[in-house]
């Protein structure tokens, strides 16, 4: 197709980037406005003559926002570590070893990734409630496995398949056992793939809402998405706080995306296209 990019193309690109980013830009502008400029006449002016950090201070003093961030970080971090570890074993076996029932296992993993969360919530909630795990980190880490495990197995299988088989053969010739081959040959080569998977799993766990909403209802165990969604003022919606909180969660994300965009894209599209 047309492989040259003309000036018109860059205009189109600029408009596209602006439209996609506009909501975030507006949140950034609004977050540094004094609270009275969020309403009335000045609500639609894209700048303020009196920038202030009041909204940011309010987010951390009026809500346990730091606690929300910490909760999200702990839950997503542990979920990522343990699912990627377990998934890497499974993906290795499926991609590299010979055994019966692979199609069935992959089919199962695919179907489970299609399960609607709402269909699993009532038994999981009742079980966690009965064993006293609601309002705890473990209460979220366990159900998050439903989402993250199939996801990581799928992505990792693609990455493991890309590693040349010759290396494995060579290791075998030298008398390495299968486990040695895995730890010393395959795993080091799979590190980029595992890292990519970890990023995607972390994002999925960080963004999860339904389980977090229903299982951890106590203020000190809420995660960031639930915390922000439940921001409430005494009389009005605290828009100032919401804009500041949105900016706070978006900035690390922007940095992460800028750093790892190549990896994220390769993880997202792996296997969705024929190669």
């Amino acid at each position: 197709m047309n492989k040259k990019a003309g000036p018109l193309f860059y205009v189109f690109l600029a408009i596209f980037v602006f439209l996609v980013m506009f909501p975030f830009l507006w949140m950034l502008i609004s977050s540094i406005k004094p609270i009275n400029e969020l309403f009335g006449d000045k609500a639609f002016t894209p700048f303020t003559s009196r920038p202030t950090l009041d909204n940011y201070i309010s987010v951390f003093t009026n809500y346990p926002f730091l606690k929300y961030l910490w909760n999200s970080f702990v839950v997503s971090g542990i979920t990522t570590l343990y699912t990627v570890l377990i998934a890497s074993f499974t993906a290795y076996a499926i991609a590299r070893l010979k055994f019966r029932g692979k199609t069935v296992i992959l089919g199962l993993v695919l179907s489970v990734s299609m399960f609607p969360q709402i269909a699993t919530i009532s038994p999981i909630y009742i079980l966690l409630k009965n064993i006293g795990l609601t309002n705890s980190y473990l209460g979220l880490i366990i159900p998050y496995t439903t989402i993250t495990l199939p996801l990581s197995i799928w992505i990792l299988v693609t990455f493991f398949r890309k590693i040349p088989f010759d290396l494995e053969e060579a290791a075998k010739m030298d008398g390495a056992t299968l486990m040695q081959t895995y730890w010393k040959v395959i795993l080091p080569l799979a590190v980029p793939g595992i890292f990519t998977t970890a990023i995607l799993v972390f994002i999925a766990a960080w963004n999860e809402f339904l389980f977090a909403l229903t299982i951890n209802t106590e203020e000190k165990f809420k995660t960031v998405p639930v915390g922000i969604a439940m921001f409430e003022g005494q009389f009005t919606v605290p828009w100032g706080d919401i804009t500041a909180a949105t900016v706070i969660v978006t900035i690390p994300l922007v940095i992460m995306v800028l750093l790892f965009q190549r990896r994220i894209v390769s993880g997202l599209t792996s296997g969705a296209v024929k190669e």
Binding site: M1, K4, F9, F24, I203, F209, A229, T250, I264
Partner: peptide, 28 residues
């Protein structure tokens, strides 16, 4: 689908709405 200057930036732009928690973007 062509070579152009600023690919990385466009790709990052594309990823941000996807990566932000849905609940947070809904509030926004």
């Amino acid at each position: 689908n062509k070579a152009f200057f600023g690919r990385g930036l466009v790709r990052a732009t594309i990823l941000i709405p996807w990566a932000i928690p849905t609940a947070v973007s809904a509030k926004m």
